[in-house]
Simulated assay, not measured.
Amino acid sequence: MMRKNILWIVLIAGCNAVSGQMGINTMNPQGVLHVDGQKDNPASGNTFTASQQENDVVVTASGRLGAGTISPAVKVDARNQGNGAVGFGNTSLSAATADEGAVKYNNGLQYSNGNEWIPLLTAQSGSNKVIVIASKTNNNVKLVNPSANTTTGLQNRQSNYLVSWTKTFENNSGNSFNASTGVFTAPHDGVYVASFNTDMAPLAINYNTDTLSPIQIEAIWQLYDNTTGLAASNIISTVKCANTMSSNSIGNLDAGSNCTASFFMSAGQRLMPYTWFNLNNSNTANFSLNTSADGYNSLTIAEQ
C-alpha cells in the first residue's frame, strides 16, 4: 500500500490534471495534453512567448495537435517564429495503400492521389527560373538521329535534328541550353514550356497524290531521360506539330511550322527540337532554311 501511495505522489508531481487537462513539466496546461519540453512556461495565465511555445506540444479539446504552438489552427500545426519545419520520410507503401493525400520524401516531396505518387513541384523564385532564347541562321543539322555527324543541308523525308543555334539569352546558371548540340537539360524538376519555329527557304511545293504520304512539314520536340544517351531507348516522349499542304505551288513558297508544348521535366532530362518534311515527293538533299537574320528560325524555353 505504501508503494502505491508513493507512485501516485510521483505521478501527481510530474503532471497536473485540472478540468480534464494534463500537463507534463507544467502546472499550467493549455490543452487536454500539454508537454513543456524545457519547463519554461509561466505558472499561470495564458500568455506564452514564442520561445516558450517553441518547445511545447499541445493536444486541444478539438483534436488539434500543436508542435511549437499552443494554439494550433489546423489538425497538425507546427508554425512558430523559431524552428517550424516538418520532416517527411520515404515509405514502401504504394500510393493506393497510403491513400489519397499522403506525403513522402523520395529525392523530393511526393504526394499520393490515390493511384500514384506525384512529384510535388518546388516553386522557384522568379530570378531562378530558366529562360532560354535562341535563333538559327544556318543549315547545320544531324540527320536521322541526334548522335550522327553534323551535316550542312536538310534532307526531305528525314529527321533533321536542329543544331548550331545562336543563344541570345539565358538566365539562371546560363548553361542549361547547349547551343551547339541544340539540347536543353533541365537543371531541376519543373514544368517547362518549349517553343520553336522553322521556315524553309522559298521552294516549289509539289502536290503528292499519295494520301499516305501528304505534303507536310513537322516541328517536333523530343524528350530524353536523364542519362547521356540519345538513342531511341532514351526517349521519354515525342510531341509533333504538323502543317499540311494540298496543292502545287505556281511559284516558290515558304513552308514553315511551329511546335509549342509543356513538359514536366525531372532534373537532368533533356529536350531537343527537330523537323521532318515532305515537300516535293523526292529524297533530294540539301534543302535550306530561311537563314536570314529576321528571326524565322527561333527557339524559346521558359520554366513556369
Results as ranks from 00 to 15, higher is better:
residue 26 T to S: 15
residue 178 N to D: 15
residue 1 M to Y: 13
residue 222 Q to A: 09
residue 96 A to L: 02
residue 57 V to M: 13
residue 271 L to G: 06
residue 105 Y to R: 11
residue 185 T to E: 09
residue 289 L to A: 08
residue 46 N to L: 09
residue 75 K to E: 13
residue 179 A to S: 15
residue 12 I to D: 12
residue 66 G to E: 10
residue 182 G to E: 01
residue 264 F to I: 00
residue 15 C to L: 12
residue 45 G to S: 11
residue 273 P to I: 09
residue 268 G to R: 06
residue 96 A to E: 10
residue 204 A to N: 14
residue 11 L to Q: 08
residue 48 F to I: 04
residue 134 A to T: 01
residue 108 G to H: 02
residue 16 N to F: 14
residue 293 A to W: 07
residue 159 S to K: 15
residue 112 S to Y: 11
residue 273 P to W: 12
residue 248 N to M: 03
residue 232 A to E: 08
residue 250 I to D: 06
residue 12 I to F: 14
residue 178 N to V: 02
residue 16 N to S: 15
residue 292 S to G: 15
residue 70 I to L: 15
residue 215 I to Y: 06
residue 56 D to P: 09
residue 302 A to D: 04
residue 234 N to V: 00
residue 72 P to M: 03
residue 44 S to M: 10
residue 209 T to G: 15
residue 188 H to Q: 08
residue 115 N to D: 10
residue 13 A to W: 03
residue 66 G to K: 08
residue 15 C to F: 13
residue 177 F to C: 01
residue 31 G to Y: 13
residue 253 L to K: 05
residue 256 G to H: 08
residue 219 A to K: 08
residue 137 T to M: 11
residue 211 T to R: 09
residue 200 M to H: 01
residue 77 D to R: 12
residue 14 G to P: 00
residue 27 M to I: 10
residue 276 W to N: 11
residue 130 V to K: 01
residue 302 A to W: 01
residue 186 A to K: 02
residue 59 V to H: 05
residue 167 K to Y: 11
residue 290 N to I: 05
residue 9 I to N: 13
residue 40 D to A: 07
residue 263 F to K: 02
residue 175 N to C: 00
residue 104 K to E: 12
residue 281 N to L: 00
residue 303 E to C: 00
residue 280 N to M: 07
residue 300 T to K: 12
residue 194 A to L: 07
residue 264 F to R: 10
residue 59 V to N: 03
residue 37 G to W: 11
residue 82 G to L: 08
residue 83 N to Y: 14
residue 77 D to Q: 12
residue 224 Y to S: 11
residue 236 I to P: 04
residue 31 G to H: 02
residue 77 D to L: 05
residue 134 A to N: 01
residue 38 Q to K: 14
residue 29 P to Y: 08
residue 38 Q to R: 13
residue 202 P to D: 09
residue 203 L to D: 01
residue 150 T to Y: 01
residue 129 K to H: 02
residue 206 N to L: 14
residue 241 C to P: 04
residue 95 A to W: 08
residue 111 Y to G: 06
residue 37 G to I: 01
residue 162 L to D: 11
residue 159 S to G: 11
residue 273 P to Q: 10
residue 205 I to W: 09
residue 250 I to R: 04
residue 171 N to E: 04
residue 210 D to L: 08
residue 151 T to N: 13
residue 199 D to A: 04
residue 21 Q to W: 07
residue 128 N to Y: 00
residue 71 S to R: 13
residue 260 T to N: 07
residue 146 P to D: 05
residue 71 S to L: 09
residue 288 S to Q: 13
residue 124 Q to I: 00
residue 4 K to C: 02
residue 139 N to T: 09
residue 255 A to L: 05
residue 94 S to M: 04
residue 19 S to R: 07
residue 277 F to Q: 12
residue 199 D to K: 03
residue 187 P to W: 11
residue 255 A to I: 08
residue 292 S to V: 12
residue 205 I to L: 15
residue 97 T to N: 04
residue 7 L to H: 12
residue 138 N to W: 06
residue 245 M to Y: 15
residue 192 Y to F: 04
residue 183 V to H: 06
residue 121 L to N: 05
residue 150 T to L: 05
residue 232 A to H: 01
residue 50 A to I: 10
residue 233 S to Y: 09
residue 199 D to Q: 15
residue 249 S to C: 07
residue 14 G to Y: 14
